[in-house]
Design a protein around this nucleic acid. Structure first.
Length: 471
RNA sequence: GUCCCCAUCGUCUAGAGGCCUAGGACGACGCCCUCUCACGGCGUAAACCGGGGUUCGAAUCCCCGUGGGGACGCCA
């Protein structure tokens, strides 16, 4: 049997991190088995569903590289069909009309709660003659669920999960206004879409019992289930908007790479021995459901950041420059010129191993794209004050005299000069760094000089020496 | 309250009865490398929730506590 999985978010917000992981697992499982991965938008809640949220989900999945097969299914569009199934169940006696009003049901629940009893619909209209129906009430349709025995769901992640049928009540399939409920819609859609493996958050685990009963009532083949534990915030509480439950695009904007995100999300709950760095290719080859842990995991930004640093260093230079240019333009408030882009291309390999996110990378790269005179930060200015300028003053003519402008010659020259001054190389390199990058942190300074070129380097040096009068 | 699920270093986890004086990774700390910052290398601290069983032997199996999470809607 071919594997068919799906990701079925409701478009009521962004694609949050838990949803992203669920999507990843479904995608991986399908790819692993050469099957299909479908996307279904559960937009039956007309009040809360928005087109904006749909777009965000699409964008988020695309950014993560989780392309779905075929066209996305919009659940609301299938509501009529869902209702038909409810009516079929009604005709075959597996469902019944319930004329209880919402107020009545609330009252029953309140009473049960007060008595410390489980809140269940007591099946008032299950066997009652419809002719007793009060006038003017639009009934709902409820499933006639088994009242004895137990429902056992074999779960690929959780193992065999069972519940006594007395614990379950007769769920509503069709609302009074004739629209289907979530329970009905999911089951019908999963069946119609030929879903073989339902991989979702374990907040759905208890729903599964009811869905199981519905499948049986419909006489349909029941898919395999795999309920994965939820992701929690750093404090162990349910992931909320306060911490971590950001949309995928928020992580993109923080400068994370999709491949890092995939690796991080994969390792959150799934493991393959001691492997930590797992490429998407390896993940596709290795992914399985039984290596998924059963306990919830906490979201750890530090770990994601480290992982991102790894993928950043691995990333192709040209790709990084492409990602970088808009970020720099944003910081500069202008376009990045051709020659500045060339510097970036030359400098990117030295920059990328110092950054953990694209945001950091942009901050680090900024000095290559800035126009003279360079602003000098506080720490760097101090380096220039403390005798730094004096050293640079004497170094300047030596640098000017370099015949072939490359990092090697420049470093040799600086080393010889430092030695002659009875100084360590650092005492020369740091003021140079301050003058040329405007900061105390940069790639190796002689690399920077080569990339900047003779004219720009000398210009920046002169700027730094002149600024003494201003200081 | 009722039901369901879960429980190894701060965090993510390895571990499927003896290989465990519990391994790896992130984070923390220290050292080395070094023109800064990173990277890299080396090292240190750090965990089997508690109690009962089963067994020659339990992190691993069972039970009970405790703790955490989830679900109990004419929301999805």
């Amino acid at each position: 049997m071919d594997v068919v999985t799906r990701f079925a978010p409701s478009p009521t917000g962004y694609l949050h991190i838990g949803g992203a992981r669920t999507a990843l697992f479904n995608w991986l499982y399908a790819r692993r088995h050469g099957g299909k991965f479908h996307l279904r938008i559960e937009d039956t809640d007309r009040q809360r569903s928005t087109q904006d949220a749909v777009d965000k989900i699409f964008d988020g999945l695309r950014w993560l590289g989780l392309e779905w097969d075929g066209e996305p299914v919009f659940q609301f569009a299938r509501a009529k069909h869902h209702a038909e199934i409810a009516h079929q169940l009604l005709e075959s006696g597996l469902a019944y009309r319930c004329y209880c009003s919402p107020d009545e049901l609330t009252a029953i629940r309140e009473e049960q709660k007060a008595k410390g009893q489980p809140t269940r619909y007591p099946g008032i209209w299950r066997d009652r003659d419809p002719s007793d129906a009060p006038p003017g009430i639009q009934p709902v349709i409820r499933l006639k669920a088994p009242q004895t025995g137990e429902t056992v769901v074999p779960d690929l992640v959780q193992g065999e999960v069972r519940v006594a049928n007395e614990q379950l009540d007769d769920m509503v399939l069709l609302r009074a206004d004739g629209t289907p409920t979530y329970m009905l819609s999911v089951v019908v859609d999963d069946h119609d879409m030929g879903i073989t493996h339902v991989i979702r958050g374990d907040d759905h685990l208890t729903n599964t019992f009811r869905q199981y009963q519905l499948y049986k009532a419909c006489g349909w083949h029941i898919p395999h289930f795999g309920h994965i534990p939820l992701i929690h915030g750093p404090d162990g509480a349910k992931l909320s908007k306060r911490h971590g439950a950001l949309g995928a695009e928020a992580y993109r904007d923080m400068g994370f790479l999709p491949e890092a995100m995939r690796n991080y999300l994969l390792r959150l709950g799934w493991s393959h021995g001691d492997d930590e760095i797992i490429s998407t290719e390896q993940a596709v080859a290795w992914f399985n459901l039984d290596a998924i842990g059963r306990s919830p995991a906490r979201f750890d930004l530090a770990r994601l950041t480290t992982l991102n640093g790894h993928y950043l260093r691995q990333a192709d230079d040209a790709r990084l420059v492409e990602l970088l240019v808009p970020l720099l333009a944003e910081r500069l408030g202008r376009l990045v010129t051709e020659s500045q882009q060339l510097r970036l291309k030359a400098g990117i390999s030295g920059l990328k191993e110092r950054a953990k996110t694209l945001t950091e990378l942009a901050d680090l790269a900024l000095f290559y794209a800035k126009e003279r005179p360079l602003p000098v930060d506080e720490k760097a200015a101090r380096l220039l004050d403390e005798g730094g300028r004096a050293l640079l003053e004497k170094l300047k003519p030596l640098i000017e005299g370099v015949a072939i402008w490359n990092r090697h010659n420049l470093e040799e020259l600086a080393r010889a000069y430092a030695e002659a001054q009875g100084q360590k190389l650092g005492s020369i390199a740091q003021p140079l760094r301050a003058a040329l990058s405007g900061s105390t942190v940069s790639p190796p300074i002689f690399d920077v000089m080569e990339i900047l070129g003779r004219d720009e380097t000398m210009g920046r040096l002169v700027d730094a020496l002149l600024s003494r009068q201003d200081a």
